[in-house]
Each structure stands twice: as C-alpha cells, then as structure tokens.
Amino acid sequence: MTTDFIAVLANPRAGRGRHRGLLPGVLQVLGESGRAVRLLEADSGVAAEQACHRAVDEGAVALVAVGGDGTVHRVLQAVAGRAVGFGVIAAGTGNDFAAAVAVPENPLEAAAGITAALEADRDHRIDAVLAADAAGRERWFCAVLAAGFDALVNERANRMVWPRGPRRYDLAIGLELARLRVRTYTLEIDGETRTVPAEIVAVGNAASYGGGMRILPDADPADGLLDVIYAGGLGRGGLARLKPRLRHGTHVTDPRVHVLRARHVRVHAEGIIGYADGERLGPLPLDLKIVPGAIRLLR
C-alpha cells in the first residue's frame, strides 16, 4: 500500500464546471512534490467523506479539496483535529473559506503553494468549529453557521425541484420574505444565556458565506474565537435594505445588529434547520465549540 501520498477530492460540478479542465494541471503540480497523487472517487457526499477518511487511515500526508465550500466541508470531516495537512483549491461558486484563509484564486497557483508547503514541511494553524446536535452527533465546519432567515431560505430552496440554478434561491427568498416573522432564540454565550427576538442569527469562524456576503466582517479564522451575530426587529423592509450591505460588512453599524465573540455557543429556536459551509447541518439546538488550530492548512 502506498503511504505518504496526496489525496485529492474534486467536485466536477463545482463552480458550474468552469474549472473542470484545470484538474489535470492541478494534479501535475501537486505531483511535483515527489509524492504520489491519488484522485478520490465518490458518487455522493457520504461516499466522499468515507473516501477521505480511508485516505487518512491509509497514510495520506495531505488531503486537497478542489471545489467550493461544500467540497471543503466534506474534506474537513477527515482532517480536522488530525495531523494530516489540508489543502484548498478554490473552484466553486462560493469560496468563502478559501477567501478567509488567503488561498490564491488561481487554481494552479494554489496547487503550487500546497506543493511548496509540503516540501518545506510548513503549515498554517487554522481554527475549526465542532458542532453537536441534540443527540450528540458531531460535525466540523470552518466558515459560517446560518441559523436565521438565510437558513430558512436554504432549507426551502433545497426542497424545491423548480426552477434550477440561482433563480431557485431568488424564489425561495421571496417566499420566505412573505412569511417572515421574528423568532425567539435562546443563545448561550460562554455560559451566559440570552433570550432574544431575531430574524438573522449566524455563528462563524470566517467573515463570509453565500459567496462573499460578509455576515461576520471581523471574524478571524485563527483567533481562537467564534463570532456571533443576531438582529431583530427588521421586518421585511429592514431585512431587504440590510441584505445589500452584507457585501461590504457595513450592516454591523445598524443598531439592531448585535455582534459578540465567544469560545462556546449554543443556539436554539423552534423550526430552524442550521446550515454550515452551505451544507445542511441539522435542526437546532446546536452546540458549537471553537477548536483552535484544528486544521493544518497547506498554503
């Protein structure tokens, strides 16, 4: 069995397939490290995670995610808290984690950085978030957990079979705005309990989600802290006016928006499914702990 190899999980549909032709070049650059490069095969998200875990167990020195935040999320389950290196090549529609940790936008440049890091035996320690649901099932994420209006939009869009593409999310936004209401959240912030009315709630390790919406503009993925945001009393008009400001992170100046930092956060509200790194995490309550330096990022 070959050990000390580089395993690569690539999503050919990421970024609507626009980077598909670059994969052979990426694999070639990674191979310049002198190690064998193994492209992992999987036909589902579950199979992808299983393949990543097998690669680590078989002696992979690094796992590389080629895709967007969804692909990063899959690989993260096998690398967080372990000694294996983690490489990211941004090739998705939304590359929020890659942007947060300064991964080069050019895929070949990112691959060269991973190769150089392996050759120099260096890494950058990055935090990750360990989430647990009410049954104690654990899952890692690295960017942002959406637990408010945006989570409702994600859940509705994922249930829809028409239309396809971005229009589905536009329709889901309109439908959720029509039924918008303030919900009561229980937030436990480092042991302090707050009961707050809110329409927006998010907890994260990185600044943005949804392909560049800077929901937590001051979040630092290496500071050992979670950033928490909640906002209430917005109404449909207020929420619609606030959303464009997310691109620049200026929404945090609104007096109805509250931002906190903590190491341990518990989020609870009725009828909300949490989404982290754009992936369905599960129903609230969710218990979130920051794990400093859980990722050995190769860059």
Rank of each mutant, 00 (worst) to 15 (best):
F5Y: 14
P12G: 05
A14T: 00
R18L: 12
H19W: 13
G25L: 01
V26T: 02
Q28E: 15
L30A: 09
A36L: 09
L40S: 03
A48G: 14
E49I: 10
C52W: 05
G59A: 04
A65R: 05
G68T: 10
R74G: 00
A80E: 13
F86R: 09
D96M: 07
P104L: 07
P104G: 08
N106V: 11
I114F: 08
A116T: 12
R122M: 00
H124I: 15
I126T: 12
D133N: 15
A134E: 15
R137P: 00
R137N: 14
R139H: 11
R139A: 11
A143I: 04
V144M: 06
A151S: 12
N158G: 01
N158R: 11
P163M: 10
R164Q: 13
P166D: 01
I173N: 10
E176T: 11
R181N: 06
V182N: 12
Y185T: 00
L187Q: 05
E188M: 00
I189M: 05
G191W: 05
G191I: 04
E192V: 05
V201F: 05
A202G: 06
N205W: 05
S208T: 04
G211H: 03
M213H: 11
P217G: 09
Y230K: 03
Y230F: 15
L234D: 09
L234S: 12
R236K: 15
G237R: 14
G237K: 12
L239D: 12
P244V: 10
R245F: 08
H248D: 13
G249R: 11
T250Q: 13
H251Y: 12
V252S: 09
V257Q: 05
A262D: 06
R263Q: 15
Y275G: 02
R280W: 03
P285S: 05
L288I: 04
I290C: 02
R296V: 04
L298E: 04
R299I: 07
